[in-house]
């Protein structure tokens, strides 16, 4: 069982969360021509890192907020959690 520290609600079990994938993916800015390659990278291509991975989770059975979680994909250790709009250094 993973325990995720929701920045809004505190420590909760993974059963309350749903996973949202890589949080480092940025949607292309729409104020310019977006190439197929850029869309491709945004929609499909992923680094899928082994080790520290910044990812989105939604506290679906809690506050229903999206949050960011820094987790190790090899050990499942969770290091830090952030609100969705927090910049991660």
């Amino acid at each position: 069982m993973l325990y995720i520290n929701c920045p809004h609600c505190g420590m909760r079990s993974q059963n309350e969360f749903s996973y949202g994938g890589d949080a480092s993916v940025k949607r292309p800015k729409l104020n310019k021509e977006v190439s197929d390659q850029e869309w491709d990278n945004f929609v499909y291509n992923r680094k899928s890192l082994r080790g520290k991975h910044l990812e989105l989770w939604q506290h679906i059975s809690g506050c229903r907020q999206w949050i960011k979680v820094e987790r190790d994909t090899a050990t499942h250790e969770i290091f830090r959690t952030f609100k969705a709009d927090e910049e991660v250094a």
């Binding site: 069982m1 993973l2 079990s13 993974q14 059963n15 749903s18 996973y19 994938g21 890589d22 899928s48 890192l49 082994r50 991975h53 990812e55 987790r71 994909t73 090899a74 050990t75 499942h76």
Partner: peptide
Amino acid sequence: DGYNSYAQRGNLP
């Protein structure tokens, strides 16, 4: 299990 993982072992939920 639903999240990116390289661990060759699972989780109970």
